[in-house]
Computed example of a mutant assay.
Amino acid sequence: MYTRPRRGQRVVAPILFVFVALAATVASRCAHAHIVAQPDQGKAGSYFETSLKVPHGCDGSSTVALRVGIPDGVLSIKPQMKPGWTVSIVTRSIDPPLKLEHGMTIDKAVAAVEWRGGPLPDSLYDTFGLVMKLPTTAGKTLYFPVVQTCENGKRDWTDIPVEGQDWHTVHSPAPQVRLVPAQ
């Protein structure tokens, strides 16, 4: 036997649908709102290419600069050149200098890479590539703290989880790359 829905039921169902759809959209945007490294796993001791995906600006404002801190242990890095952007590399001294195979010695490493230019509108995304030689310690996670500067404001993606804390629970997580065994 069919009974016609009451007037209140006909109003609540569409409102509930809109609320659920809106909540799913917001949750999806939040889940993908961080700057992330893609891919985020590389073989320890190998040369590795990744891109930092910048999914949005700062509260509606376009991105005009991205500064990426390079973790200790990454001794060789080459940033991607991007049309409309300038790239600069900041180095740090290594003391004592490291002796590498083939008799090479290095006394400087890259501390940060910075892209300036664009602008990258808030409604669009882009990627900023890095090629690097990964450290040999499998099981370690490397964090690449990022400062995103926009036309109006900035956003720090520099939080590093403490041991045992999940990366997804950190408020403004630094992009990460996990080192996996070379086999």
Rank of each mutant, 00 (worst) to 15 (best):
F19I: 05
P55F: 13
K108V: 11
V147Y: 03
I106V: 15
L75V: 08
V170R: 12
A37T: 05
S172Y: 14
R92T: 10
Y2M: 05
V74D: 07
G57M: 09
W157H: 14
S46C: 01
W85A: 00
F48H: 06
V68K: 00
G129V: 11
A37G: 02
A112L: 05
S93T: 07
T3L: 08
A13V: 15
E114P: 01
Y143D: 11
K78W: 12
T86Y: 12
R4S: 06
L100S: 03
R178G: 01
R178K: 14
R67P: 01
H32A: 01
P96W: 11
T86W: 03
P181A: 05
H56D: 10
A33Y: 09
D107R: 12
R6Q: 12
D159S: 11
Y47E: 10
L66F: 13
N152H: 10
S88Y: 00
P14A: 08
D156N: 13
L52W: 12
V147W: 01
P79E: 05
P161I: 09
P119F: 02
A27C: 06
D107Q: 11
E151N: 13
L120K: 09
K154L: 12
F48M: 02
A65L: 06
E151Y: 09
G118C: 11
G129E: 04
P83N: 06
V180S: 09
S88R: 13
Q176K: 15
T25F: 12
C30F: 08
G139P: 05
Y2H: 08
G139N: 02
P79H: 02
S51W: 14
A138D: 03
K154V: 00
R6M: 05
R6Y: 04
R29K: 09
W157D: 00
V131T: 15
V113L: 03
E114M: 11
D59N: 13
E49P: 00
E151T: 04
A174S: 14
R155G: 03
T25S: 14
V87H: 07
V54T: 10
I15N: 03
P55I: 06
F19Q: 04
F144R: 00
T136K: 14
K154D: 11
S93M: 01
Q148K: 07
Y47D: 10
K43P: 05
S62F: 03
V54S: 03
K82P: 01
F17P: 00
H34F: 13
L134I: 06
P145N: 04
K82T: 11
K108S: 13
P79C: 00
S88N: 06
G60L: 08
P83E: 04
T136S: 14
I160N: 07
L22R: 04
V18E: 04
L120C: 06
V64E: 12
K133S: 10
M104V: 09
Q165F: 14
H168Q: 15
T63V: 15
E151H: 07
Y143Q: 07
P5I: 07
G164R: 02
Y143N: 04
S62P: 15
M81E: 10
S51M: 02
G57C: 09
P14G: 09
V131I: 10
S88K: 10
K43A: 14
T50V: 05
V12T: 05
I70W: 03
S76V: 14
D166W: 15
V64P: 08
